[in-house]
Amino acid sequence: MKRGSFVALLILLVLLSVVSLFIGVRNITPWGLFQASEDQLQVFFISRVPRLIAILTAGASMSVVGLIMQQLARNKFVSPSTAGTMESASLGVLVATLMFSSASVLHKTAIAFVFALIGTVIFMRILEYAKYKDVIIVPLVGIMFGNVIGAFTTFLALRYDLLQSLNGWMNGDFSGILRGRYELLYIAVPLTIASYIFADRFTLAGMGADFATNLGLNYRFVVNLGLAIIALSSSVVVLTVGSIPYLGLIVPNVVTIMLGDNIRKTLPFTATLGALFVLVCDIIGRTIRYPYEIPISLVVGVVGSAVFLFLILRRGVYATA
């Protein structure tokens, strides 16, 4: 049964991907592709295809990142957007822009990565420091932490008159994806594959240092690797696409509700469903007010919030892994 539904998901993904390639202001149809003009081909390969790749990569990688975080923190409501990670990455990008205004993309990534890493580590520390009897507090603290960082970032941006640009990358948007401007996202692919390889070890690490070491795990290494993957993926997504709320939270939760917690089983599903989710939201964003486009962060903000609410109400107390 599971096999069947996985295949069904994949097929759906492929179908919708194809559909996505042909939505847009410029009228390009599948059969017209072969007699396409120079212009149309350009749009196709410079904008449409890269956009699709970006959508799939961002969706898949962030969902997987969310899954890892949930394993490591033993809490179903932890994700890059509820742990201050995305906000830290954004702060990193701002600082990079401020201090090295002509920095290369790689430079910016490195700085964003460092900030995202620090932010996530601080969050994990806060979790350790305060013993929570209530699982629901964790995402609360994470969101608040993210808000504080966000406020500080906005403060800096206002100070140095970068608010316009800040809003640009704080709000996730696929419309700016063009060939030559998004390749950074490819980094997320090997990271996602690495996640799959280390999946079981992340689960083990989540059970605590003593428990894991007792079973022969190199605890520190695994945790640090996990954090690095999380921080790097988030940074890369923020830099290319921007910040998308609740991504990395919704999909892993939906998958684990349906399929349980065996990460080897759920990871491929999560990646696929994540890609599908973002794809569907993007298609909605592009068609609901055609020819205007509604940025992905808004669509996911609405859909994501609704789903998150539903999850909370349903999952409530049973949110420990």
Binding site: D134, I136, I137, P139, L140, I143, P245, Y246, I294, S297, L298, V299, G301, V302, S305, A306, F308, L309, I312, L313, G316
Partner: peptide, 20 residues
């Protein structure tokens, strides 16, 4: 805390929906 979390999500939902 449940209430607070719900409230915050509502805040995001309303905010996103408003922008939308």
């Amino acid at each position: 805390y449940f209430l607070v979390l719900i409230g915050i999500i509502f805040g995001t939902l309303f905010g996103s929906f408003t922008s939308f």
